[in-house]
Amino acid sequence: MTFGNDTIMRRLTSCWLFSLMLGIASMPALADEVEQAASAWTVTELMQGLAQVKKSSATFIELKHLSMLKEPLAFSGTLEYTAPGRLEKRTLLPKPESMVLDRDRLEVQSGGAGKKRVLSLQAYPAIWAFVESIRSTLAGDLDTLNRFYRVSLEGQRGKWQLTLLPLDSKMKDMVSEIRIGGSGEQVNTIEIREAGGDYSVMSISKGGS
């Protein structure tokens, strides 16, 4: 009976969660057991290669450069991916926080407060679009990527960079560009450029915790 509020809530939380997703989207695909791909290098082949990865884990270091701060913020923790749709980001420093994405379900838990939130992605199309930027990359699902982004690839198989430009204008207001860098079937960096000039860079090291 509180639909008016529902919508405000949805709108505001969706922005909030949208940004949450920026974090979870900073996810790597870490190739553990993959076959060698052919020598000619196209987006399609990159995707085929990425699709081979069924499970991977890594550690990350993330630096956030914000104009309102005198110095960047640093975070570190672990990442885990299980094909086709499960992602886990566990921030350990400076404060523990975890985010788990499983198919349509997103669960966020901040360590201190012990508060847990669960939501269904389908109810939040903007977040859904954002999630797919990384999940579809990891899953090698080019069709879904094309639905939300203009996708371009530079470089060679040994060192490549995938650039995603949001198609939706509302998303453009938040994020201007997502750059995913990697080598072979492994994702090494995720760089998110926000509309106002702030940006974050996440470096990923293979090998798990």
Binding site: C15, W16, L17, F18, S19, L20, M21, L22, G23, I24, K64, L66, M68, L69, L73, F75, P94, K95, E97, M99, S110, M174, V175, E194, D198
Partner: peptide, 18 residues
């Protein structure tokens, strides 16, 4: 606020924090 800014919620929160 700093923690929020650092967290993925930062994108939205940063406009409001000042």
């Amino acid at each position: 606020a700093l923690q929020l800014l650092g967290s993925p919620a930062g994108v939205m929160v940063k406009r409001v924090i000042p």
